[in-house]
Design a protein around this nucleic acid. Structure first.
Length: 232
DNA sequence: GCGACAG
DNA sequence: ATCTTGTCGC
């Protein structure tokens, strides 16, 4: 799929990047998706120990099949063009993820990113940036908390509690995908709402803590990384 | 001033 | 993210 439009000038300074997030935030649409969702792509990025190289991968699964079979996958090797700064994470990972998406033969109906969506200091996390650039419904599913107040959900699969922002507004949900495991932090990125985002994450994480598409993308990143290591 | 801080 | 040992449990 792609190519994708440019959302902002290249190589912004940290201050400019924060301003870009604040500006782009107004373009987000957080409504329930209208069309059928079948091809769901998980996205992830891995780094070498010295962070001089990165490996981005996307894995597309068939959400219409209960077995969630892999339909297609693609990946790229590259170099980080932005430092890791909490809050500016998307400027580091969106470029390589888009590059991987461009290598897919087919289109996707939904993206799931390994990070937050609107549950972010300026309401514009990785899933927002990625979703806006790709113009596809995108969910943010993070393993740890970033911003917002929340209570521990019940210890059973499917339990969830709201993540509340400074103004008392709901930003996302803390979702328990499996009995007795740590919950994940879910928030919409673009073209999807909080409710649907939480539902999709539970549905796609039937066997493990993280949604299947993200797990497979993570596995693909590691495979590529392993190959690159072995051949040098 | 101090702690928190996606990957 | 990555590094890194053992340990508990299915």
């Amino acid at each position: 799929m792609g190519p994708f439009p440019t959302l902002h000038p290249p190589d912004p300074s940290p201050e400019e990047a924060a301003a870009i997030q604040t500006r782009l935030r107004a373009s987000l649409r957080l409504e329930r998706p209208v069309g059928a969702i079948r091809r769901v792509a998980g996205c992830d990025v891995a780094y070498d120990e010295d962070e001089r190289r990165l490996f981005a991968a996307v894995v597309v699964i068939d959400a219409a099949d209960p077995e969630l079979p892999t339909l297609e996958e693609a990946s790229v090797v590259g170099e980080p063009a932005f430092l890791y700064v909490p809050g500016l994470f998307s400027f580091r990972e969106v470029p390589p993820i888009l590059a991987a998406l461009e290598r897919l033969a087919g289109d996707v109906d939904l993206l799931i990113a390994d990070g937050h969506g609107i549950c972010h200091p300026r309401g514009f996390g990785l899933a927002c940036h990625l979703g806006l650039a790709a113009d596809r419904p995108t969910i943010g599913c993070a393993k740890t908390h970033l911003v917002g107040a929340w209570d521990e959900p019940a210890p059973t699969r499917g339990a969830a509690s709201p993540i509340v922002g400074p103004d008392g507004d709901e930003l996302g949900r803390v979702v328990r995908t499996r009995d007795g495991v740590r919950p994940v932090f879910v928030s919409p990125g673009h073209l999807i709402d909080i409710e649907s985002s939480a539902d999709w994450v539970v549905r796609l994480a039937a066997r493990f803590r993280l949604p299947e598409p993200i797990r497979r993308a993570d596995a693909r990143c590691r495979e590529d990384q392993r190959r690159a290591r072995g051949s040098r």
